[in-house]
Amino acid sequence: MLSSVVSVSGLRVDRGGREVLHGLTFDVPRGSVVGLLGPSGCGKTTLIRSVVGVQVVRSGSVTVLGRPAGSPGLRRLVGYSTQNPAIYKDLTVAENLRYFAAVLGAPHGDVDRVIDEVGLGINRHQVVATLSGGELSRASLAAALLGSPELLVLDEPTVGLDPVLRQELWELFHELADRGVTLIVSSHVMDEAARCGRLLLMRDGDILADDSPGGLRAATGTADLEAAFLHLIAERQEAHAS
C-alpha cells in the first residue's frame, strides 16, 4: 500500500544471545506522528534501529517508502536521531551541522533553519562538549532534521528538556507532519503519548496496543493512558494464565 511509509511484518531480532523482538507487525501511514511507548528495555531502540536499517534482523521484513529498510536510496529520505546524542563533542554546534549537511547534500541555508527549529541560536558557536544535556540532545535532533527527510525516526528526543521546550518540539513535530513528513518518536514517558496521533505500546518485545490515544482510552475504559497501559498488561497476563 503506497500510503504506508513504514511496513513491518513478523520482525524478529536477537540481541545479546536472546530474542528481544518477538515477531512485530504494524504499518505507519504517511504524515502521522507515531509514538513508540514502553518501559526502558522493552525493545524500542532495537525496533527503531531496524527501521533505519542498522540492526541485523533474524527474520521478518521492514519496508520503508516501498524499499527494504537501509537501502541506499533511503539514506537521504530518512532522518535518524539516536538515544545517546550522536554528534562530535569536540566541534561547535554549527560545525557539526555543516558536516552532516554536506554529507546529506542539504542546501546551505539548512544549518540555520534547523538551529532555529530546535532553538539553539545562542549556542551556535559553542563547542558541543560544553552544552547541557538537553541542549546536546537538541543538537543531535537538529542533525536529523537536515535535508528533506520524508521519515523522521527519533529515539527519545525530548528526554531531559524543560516543559516549554518540550512543548515547542512537539509543535515542530506536528508542523512537520502537516507538511507530509512521517514521524516515529519513542518515549518512556506516558504524558507524551497524548501528543501522538497514534500509539504503539510495547512491552517485553511485543506490541500490546496499536491505536490512537482516544481509541485506547475508550477500549480500556480508563481516563488516562498510564492506566490504559496497566489495564492492557493485566489483560495480557490474565490471557496467559488461563
Binding site: 533505519v52 536499517g53 542498522v54 537501509g70 541506499p72 539514506r75 537521504r76 530518512v78 535518524y80 539516536t82 545517546n84 546524542p85 550522536a86 554528534i87 562530535y88 563533542k89 552532516f100 554529507v103 546529506l104 547534500g105 542533525a143
Partner: peptide
C-alpha cells in the same frame, strides 16, 4: 562508540 558512525551509516556517506 559515540554513535556518530551509526548515524553516518544511515546517510549517503
Amino acid at each position: 562508540t559515540g554513535g556518530t558512525l551509526e548515524r553516518l551509516m544511515t546517510t549517503p556517506l
